[in-house]
Each structure stands twice: as C-alpha cells, then as structure tokens.
Simulated assay, not measured.
Amino acid sequence: MRTHQLVLSWIEDQLSAGRLAVGGRLPAERTLAEQLKVSRTSVREAIRILEAMGVVRAGVGSGPESGTVVISDPTSALGSALRLHVATQHLPVADIVETRVLLESWAAAKAPRDAPELADAAALLEAMDVPEGLSVRDFLALDVRFHLALANAAGNTVVSAMMGSLREAIQGYAAELTANLPDWETTASRLRTEHHAILAAVRNGDGGRAAELVAAHIGGFYKEAGLGSDATEPARP
C-alpha cells in the first residue's frame, strides 16, 4: 500500500468508528505524519485526494477556518468523475438518460405530496413560465434545478447525491442537443406544460402517474433531439 493510502485508510477508519464526524478537524499535518509514521508529503497528498472527493475542506493560516475540516459533499467527486467519463465517451449519453429515467421516475413515485421541495419546484416553474429574455441556457439551468428539486422531494439522500452529480452533465448535453430541435420555442412550451403536469400529479398524491409523466417527459425530449433513447419506462411505486 502506498503511504498516502495508509493515511486515507486511517481517516476512513476514524470516520467509520465515529471518532471523526462532519464538522470535526483532522489532526495537524505534522501530528498525523508522526502518528502514522509517514511523511508529511504523504499526508498532504491524502488530504488533496479527500478534498477532491468532497470529504474534507483544507484551510490555511490560523483561526476558526484553519485546519482540515470534515465535510460531506458527495456530489463534488461524483460530478467531476461523471463529466470526465462522459467527455471520454465511456459513459454514453443514452445510458445517462436511462439512468435519469430510473432515478427520477422512482423519485416522482415516492415523493410525499407535501414535501417542502415541491414549493421550490413550483417557484422554478414560475421562472420558466416567463419566456421573455429567457435564453436556452437559462431555461435549461432552471429545468435541471426543477428536476433536482423533484428528486430531492423523495427524501433519499443517495438518489439526491446521484442526481446532483449528474447536474452539469445533464445541462451540458441537453444544451448540445437543442441544436437538433426543429423549433426550440415549440419544444420549450411543451416542456413547460409537462413540468406542470408532473408537479400536479405529485401534489395530488398520484405517484404512479407522476412517474409515467416524468419518463415520457425525459424520453420525449431526447427522442425529439435525435438521441433515439428508448429509456421511457417508469419505475413503479
């Protein structure tokens, strides 16, 4: 095992045992190096890896913001990894679309009708309903936030983290695919209508209908844009 991996393994053990928790601080670099009998360079390398993974935040200097603090941001590492693999074409866009359908239709089926996140979703729809001055980029940014709000409404932290990690990838390839649409304004109008129908179904407590609408909504956009994905079957409640 490389020496920086020893540091990572120790920190993982500390987290698992509850001796480290979110908001807690790691020992000072020198202290940790002496305790584990590794070089400070190895400790520094391990901390850089943990920062990239969204597990810690390293501060410098002195005061309340100094030191290496345990945080929890799983979407950071997942999002970076997904974007890189999409760029290398090891994760086909069609597969990501299918994953979206699975996650989002399940979330729509499970979301409680009174989930507070639904108010956020409604506010985002209001912003999308004012087309004047709303660029394609702005619309897609609001669209992604709307879908994230629906996913978060289900209350499953893993699903929320996975959807959050897909956020930039979804917005990026959706923007590219809009160039294939025959009439963006017509498509945008249809998407708005579908958004409202999805939200209404969730608020009415009709999870099965909401799941079907989400699957048709996602699959329909990508088929219209020429992706040809058949991933339109909703998850059943």
Score class of each variant (00 low, 15 high):
Thr3Lys: 12
Glu12His: 04
Gln14Gly: 12
Ala17Phe: 08
Ala17Met: 12
Arg25Met: 07
Pro27Arg: 06
Glu34Gly: 02
Leu36Asp: 02
Ser39Met: 04
Ser39His: 05
Val43Gly: 08
Glu45Gly: 05
Ile47Trp: 09
Leu50Cys: 11
Ala52Val: 08
Val56Ala: 11
Val60Lys: 13
Gly61Arg: 00
Ser62Gln: 03
Glu65His: 14
Ile71Phe: 13
Asp73Tyr: 03
Leu82Thr: 06
His85Glu: 12
His85Thr: 15
Gln89Phe: 11
Ile96Ser: 09
Trp106Thr: 10
Ala109Asn: 08
Pro131Leu: 08
Glu132Gln: 10
Glu132Met: 01
Ser135Gln: 02
Arg137Met: 00
Arg137Ile: 00
Phe139Val: 07
Asp143Ile: 11
His147Val: 02
Ala154Asp: 03
Gly155Met: 00
Asn156Phe: 01
Asn156Leu: 00
Met163Trp: 07
Leu166Ser: 13
Leu166Ile: 13
Ala169Tyr: 04
Ala169Leu: 02
Gln171Tyr: 01
Glu176Tyr: 03
Glu176Pro: 09
Ala179Leu: 01
Ala179His: 12
Pro182Val: 14
Pro182Arg: 11
Thr193Glu: 12
Glu194Gln: 10
His195Lys: 04
Ala197Gln: 04
Asp206Ala: 06
Gly208Val: 06
Leu213Cys: 04
Ala225Arg: 10
Ser229Asn: 13
Ala235Ser: 13
